[in-house]
């Protein structure tokens, strides 16, 4: 076996006890052999160091990439939260579109009186005339006609005609008058139309007061009133 084979075995720790003895003797005798062995050990050490550093760098960049990804995804999350938040903020800060809610909900109260009305005080003609205007959607004339009459029905339809003619403040005034406020027959209607009337003139607080009454007392309109409340808040 030549010396380079011996060195190979020694470097790879594959030398037998016998071979190790030979190597030891050679190293004692031959300084050139010893420095050759030393050089190979240096190579092993150097490559080991280099490869460890390379692997370490590899793992470090793997870690860095992982962190970058995490960082990036974190930023995406923050950005997403921000966008959604801004969207919601925009949504909630949207001015309440009173007109829109009013138009969606306002429907003039139908004439449920005229076919059966019989006015024995000689005003039959005038109430029939008023309803005639009302049914033909001439609310201005209807308002004038109803306004001249003094019955509960006439008062209610007077207010309705005023709303139909966009005289909201006046309609509210009539609806809040004593005899309509105490009317059992029109109580629920009055609350509903007052809520809508205040909505139309952008009086949110007063509208809410009447919406609450509607929710409490008027089964048929409670869910509509609830929806409007949500939009107002």
């Amino acid at each position: 076996m030549n010396t380079s084979d011996l060195i190979e075995k020694y470097i790879q720790k594959k030398a037998t006890a016998e071979e190790l003895e030979i190597i030891k003797q050679l190293m004692d005798r031959d300084s050139e052999f010893k420095s050759e062995v030393s050089f190979h050990l240096e190579i092993r050490k150097a490559i080991e160091k280099e490869e460890r550093e390379r692997l370490k760098q590899r793992l470090q960049s793997l870690e860095q990439n992982k962190q970058n990804k995490r960082f990036l995804s974190l930023w995406w999350k923050i950005a997403a939260v921000f966008v959604v938040g801004a969207g919601l903020l925009w949504l909630f800060n949207q001015p309440v579109n009173y007109e829109k809610i009013y138009v969606e909900n306002f429907e003039i109260y139908p004439n449920i009186v005229a076919p059966t009305v019989r006015d024995f005080n000689g005003s039959e003609e005038s109430i029939a005339k008023a309803f005639n205007y009302y049914d033909s959607r001439n609310y201005r004339e209807a308002a004038k006609a109803f306004g001249a009459l003094q019955t509960e029905d006439a008062h209610f339809y007077y207010a309705m005609s005023l709303m139909g003619d966009h005289q909201i403040e006046k309609a509210i005034e009539i609806m809040k008058s004593f005899d309509l406020q105490s009317s059992e027959k029109y109580k629920n209607q009055i609350n509903w139309y007052l809520a809508l009337g205040y909505l139309k003139i952008r009086d949110k607080d007063k509208s809410i007061i009447y919406l609450k009454k509607v929710i409490k007392n008027d089964q048929t309109r409670a869910s509509d009133a609830q929806k409007i409340m949500l939009k107002l808040k």
């Binding site: 020694y10 720790k13 190293m27 062995v37 030393s38 050089f39 050990l41 240096e42 190579i43 050490k45 150097a46 490559i47 160091k49 280099e50």
Partner: peptide, 17 residues
Amino acid sequence: DNEEDFLLKEENIEKVQ
């Protein structure tokens, strides 16, 4: 284990590296 007989110099290793 087989480095015991040798005092490998750090600067030599660096040069080989």
